[in-house]
Write a protein that binds this DNA or RNA. Structure first.
Lengths: 226, 226
DNA sequence: GCAAATATGATAGTGTTACTATTATATTTG
DNA sequence: CAAATATAATAGTAACACTATCATATTTGC
């Protein structure tokens, strides 16, 4: 796995950063440790000053890569969804049967990141946890429409459309393909959150995975072709 | 409707406030206008100082009712879910048929608040919009486990259990009743958000309601009894 | 009706956050 | 090796999230 992805660069909207963090050692360190620090203390308590201290750098240097921590969060989550999109396309590429393809897609998009897949400097296991806890905050804001117009959520939108297409390939008459796709994407993050913090509100745990719930849910709601 | 609810007091965890805002005119004004101001500028931009200016009062006076704006948000959302719970119990009280009961329950919990139902000082239409945009922020924090232990999410938890019970009443063998209930509750807020800001990710709009999607989803995933 | 208690308002102050600007010092590159 | 570029250090500002204190209303109990 590692070697396959090793040379892959996930594309992120250029307006999310001032200077491409992939272009320097400091940039990579910023990205790497912003994930770890956010995971440690939460996005609310995360500041550029603390991050600077963590990586032995200065606040002002971080501002040369990212305008503010909101943009940094958008960068991290875009990267995550871009990575997921890559996994999705890769995992479903050669599957003919629409139902098998959809199931595989849901599996990829709802599973927890277990393997230490670690592309270069980014720890995807931790990033997944950060996305579970923080992704909603990136769009639940008054600036969402402007930012969406600027393409800051383009990767996520595209991913949702891909999943929707897989749904339609199984049942072209299903009346809510987009809603079902967005429910699976967002719902998966939510179920992962619940299993950590509100275990009474979900059956999901280490044995019963969110993927099982969502595959069951989607399969039963679609009319399967003969 | 109004007269029915007029004397109802929604119970909210006492540790969410320093002084009960229902106990004074100022307290009610704080609650009333915190909803309106949060709706106007978003929770991130909301401050006690701005709220004070809005209601012709002082920042320091607001602190005598709420420790901080996070607790105020928890208060508002607890109130909202308490109000929803009341509606749920009321609307499903005399329904015998489990399927009908479940459908009605989902309807109540996923519909948008349209009527100007206005209990005393609280505008529920606006509060619903606030909950759609801000509820996730109340639990996506590092303090969630401690706060959950303190019972700050008790109303929501109870509501999810009620919905789960309705699911089990229809199909006692369904393997994911809690996950389904939490998916409906959280998913409904999400679909309402999407229809305002990411219309391409949902079929829901003014004609096709989130309720229709979720009733269809739940009905098809459960094995209905003969 | 008045004193005491309580609620509210006004002001000031503290430490932190979220930056911006400037200057100095490394490091890289042509 | 000089010039360009990147990073670090420092300082400064306005807003935020409070806390504390004191003054002034308003309510209440006798």
């Amino acid at each position: 796995m590692k070697s396959l992805f090793a040379s892959l660069k996930i594309e992120v909207n250029r307006n999310l950063y001032v200077k491409d963090p992939e272009s320097s050692a400091l940039g990579k360190k910023i990205v790497e440790h912003s994930i770890l620090l956010t995971h440690d203390i939460g996005f609310e308590h995360f500041t550029f000053k603390k991050l600077g201290a963590k990586i032995g750098s200065n606040e002002s240097s971080i501002y040369r890569y990212f305008e503010n921590k909101h943009k940094l969060l958008l960068y991290l989550t875009s990267w995550y969804w871009g990575w997921k999109e890559y996994q999705l396309v890769f995992a479903t590429a050669n599957i003919e049967d629409p139902k098998k393809k959809l199931e595989t897609g849901i599996q990829v998009l709802t599973r927890s990141v277990e393997r230490d897949s670690f592309i270069s400097h980014i720890d995807e296991v931790i990033l997944h946890k950060v996305v579970i806890n923080e992704y909603s905050k990136s769009f639940l804001s008054k600036e969402v429409d402007r930012e969406n117009k600027e393409g800051f959520f383009a990767v996520y939108n595209r991913l949702a459309v891909r999943l929707k297409e897989m749904v339609l390939a199984v049942d072209s008459n299903y009346p809510f393909p987009s809603s079902l796709a967005s429910t699976v994407l967002e719902g998966a993050l939510h179920q992962h959150f619940l299993k950590e913090h509100f275990s009474s509100l979900t059956e999901c745990n280490d044995k019963i995975l969110p993927s099982q719930f969502f595959i069951h849910l989607v399969s039963s709601t679609l009319n399967l072709p003969k």
